[in-house]
Amino acid sequence: MVDYDVIVAGGGLTGTIAAQSIAHYSNQNLKILSIDRNLEIYPGRKSLSGWTCGDACSKEAVDYMTKRIKVQWTRPEIEHDVKGVMAFSPDKETKIPFDGAGYMLNRQKLQEIQNQRARKMGVDFDFEINLTGLIYDEQQVVGVQGIDNKTKLPYKKTAKIVVDATGVTSMLRNTLKNSTKVEKRIDRRDLESTGRYIMYFEPGTKELTEFDPDYCIIHLDQDIAPGGYGWVFPKGEKKVNIGLGVEKTLLEKRNIRLGKKDNVQTLMEEYLHRNPVIKNAKLSQDPEDINNNSGIFQVSVRRQNDCMVSGGYMMVGDSAWMPKPIDAGGIGPALIAGTIIGNNVVQAIEQNDVSEKNLWQYNLDFIKE
């Protein structure tokens, strides 16, 4: 007898979308547990510095989720509407529009509201759990184990399926024992170190290549962000999410070439201060930003894992390296995959077959989208 039908390991955005999708497709008839390493007052937080992210998401991805599992985002989850994304060359002479209409999200409020919705759909939550690995019955994953940080005691829960949404450096994936198809560890060169600020500012020179309240701006410049790009994403007329991502080995080469000793933090400061539009910028002290106004994190910039399932185990979001390689955008793929996975999970449990072969359809369904 298992503790739950489904365990969703990881209480961030992707995990809670997956939990809601499973609840939706099962008509709330499955017993679902979401496990989060964070304190309950900081649900889904990526690190101690908050929910570090560019906060941008396409309207298309949100509509995809809403149409299929009836999860609808409004204010305050959506903080600002944008018409699209504009990428600029280093000299600003060439621009490439992509992605279409979208939203700037408030990740702190979004996660709080996501959890409230999931609870209403019957999802249980365990907080302050440090997961260290999976539980097996021969070649089948049957649960998770770790430490309960509240009690300092061993933690074990069993389920028919474990959905891994624990992030880019997932310990569950790294130590997976029942598959030779799943890539377990990511190459350092496929990781970007990213950092960003959420700030209010006084407008300086009007220059739409540097800040545009209607468009998310990306700067492709290897001196500013080696191996990555800088971004200036509007959250209002005088509010911005500004940051950059770099590939560390290319940053080291850039530093040698220029005779510098920059890191992500110093590059962020330089990028902020060189912007002629953003003057006298200050970190947002809004209650919904106060625990999330600055931070550094890592994101994958490669194709998703070629295989995202094994017996009793499935990956979604950053755990499966789903962010788009071109712009490291992870929210859109997470919404789509989190929506898809619910249907695959429910079908497998109804068929009483959670083998790798039967879960394989999830790989195909995600690629089709």
Results as ranks from 00 to 15, higher is better:
274 R>G: 02
299 V>Y: 04
344 N>Q: 14
328 A>R: 09
289 D>A: 05
275 N>S: 11
313 Y>F: 13
322 M>K: 02
302 R>I: 11
273 H>D: 13
318 D>E: 14
290 I>C: 06
284 S>A: 13
334 A>V: 03
344 N>H: 10
317 G>P: 01
337 A>W: 03
288 E>D: 15
339 T>K: 05
349 I>W: 07
323 P>M: 06
324 K>A: 11
333 P>G: 05
310 S>F: 00
347 Q>H: 12
283 L>G: 10
289 D>G: 00
340 I>R: 02
313 Y>D: 01
296 I>V: 14
319 S>A: 15
340 I>M: 03
291 N>L: 12
271 Y>A: 03
319 S>N: 08
294 S>Q: 14
335 L>M: 15
311 G>T: 06
335 L>H: 11
273 H>W: 11
271 Y>R: 02
347 Q>F: 03
289 D>I: 00
350 E>I: 01
282 K>F: 07
311 G>E: 10
295 G>M: 03
324 K>E: 14
280 N>Q: 15
291 N>F: 14
338 G>T: 08
272 L>K: 11
315 M>S: 04
307 C>M: 12
285 Q>C: 02
316 V>H: 03
338 G>Y: 03
288 E>F: 04
335 L>A: 09
333 P>Y: 06
343 N>G: 06
321 W>L: 06
280 N>Y: 12
275 N>T: 12
293 N>H: 13
289 D>K: 00
349 I>Y: 08
304 Q>A: 04
337 A>S: 15
272 L>W: 08
277 V>R: 02
298 Q>S: 11
272 L>D: 06
320 A>S: 15
273 H>N: 15
348 A>S: 14
275 N>I: 02
275 N>M: 05
344 N>A: 14
316 V>Y: 00
350 E>F: 02
312 G>T: 06
349 I>M: 08
272 L>Q: 12
323 P>W: 06
298 Q>R: 10
280 N>D: 15
334 A>Y: 07
346 V>A: 04
279 K>Q: 15
292 N>G: 05
280 N>R: 13
298 Q>D: 12
300 S>W: 05
341 I>W: 04
316 V>M: 04
344 N>W: 02
323 P>V: 06
338 G>C: 04
337 A>I: 06
322 M>P: 00
319 S>T: 14
276 P>A: 10
325 P>I: 07
292 N>C: 05
344 N>G: 04
328 A>V: 09
286 D>N: 12
339 T>F: 05
287 P>V: 00
311 G>K: 01
339 T>Q: 09
301 V>K: 08
290 I>T: 12
277 V>E: 08
296 I>S: 07
337 A>L: 07
282 K>G: 01
348 A>L: 07
279 K>W: 09
317 G>R: 00
320 A>I: 00
297 F>I: 10
345 V>T: 13
327 D>A: 11
296 I>P: 01
288 E>W: 12
323 P>D: 13
282 K>C: 02
280 N>C: 09
